Amino acid sequence: MSSIGSYTAIAEVGASLLKLLREQLSPDPIARPDLIGLASPADKGDLSLSLYLVGVRESGDARRNAMQAQGGQLRYPPLALDLTYLVTAHSAAEPLARTLDEHLMLGKAMQTLYDNAVLRAPYLEGSLAMSGEELRITAENMDTDQLVRLWQFGDLPYKLSLVYRVGPILLESTRVKPGPRVVERRITLRDIGEGEPR
Rank of each mutant, 00 (worst) to 15 (best):
Y114I: 02
R57I: 07
G72Q: 09
A69N: 14
A93Y: 07
Y52L: 06
E102F: 00
A69C: 00
A92Q: 13
S59C: 12
R57T: 03
Y52P: 02
N65G: 08
V56W: 01
V87E: 13
L113H: 04
P78F: 04
S91K: 02
V56A: 03
S59M: 13
S50G: 07
H90V: 10
S59D: 13
R75F: 05
R98I: 11
L47R: 15
L49W: 09
D46C: 06
V54A: 11
H103T: 11
L79I: 15
D82R: 01
T112L: 07
R75G: 02
Y76H: 15
L113K: 04
R63P: 12
P95G: 11
Y85C: 07
A69Y: 10
P95M: 14
A69G: 11
V56L: 08
H103G: 07
Y114H: 14
A69E: 05
R75N: 06
D101F: 05
L47V: 03
R57L: 01
Q70M: 00
P78W: 01
L81H: 10
Q68L: 10
D115I: 04
S91P: 03
R64G: 03
V54W: 01
S91F: 08
L49R: 10
L49D: 12
V87A: 08
L83N: 01
R98Y: 06
D101A: 15
Y114M: 09
L47D: 04
Q70L: 05
A93H: 08
T84F: 02
V56G: 01
L100Y: 08
K108P: 00
L96D: 14
E102T: 07
D46W: 03
L104V: 10
T112G: 12
A109W: 12
A80S: 12
A92S: 12
T99D: 14
N65M: 08
V56T: 15
L86T: 08
D82K: 06
S59N: 14
Y76N: 03
L104N: 13
A66Y: 07
L74M: 15
P78V: 02
P95E: 06
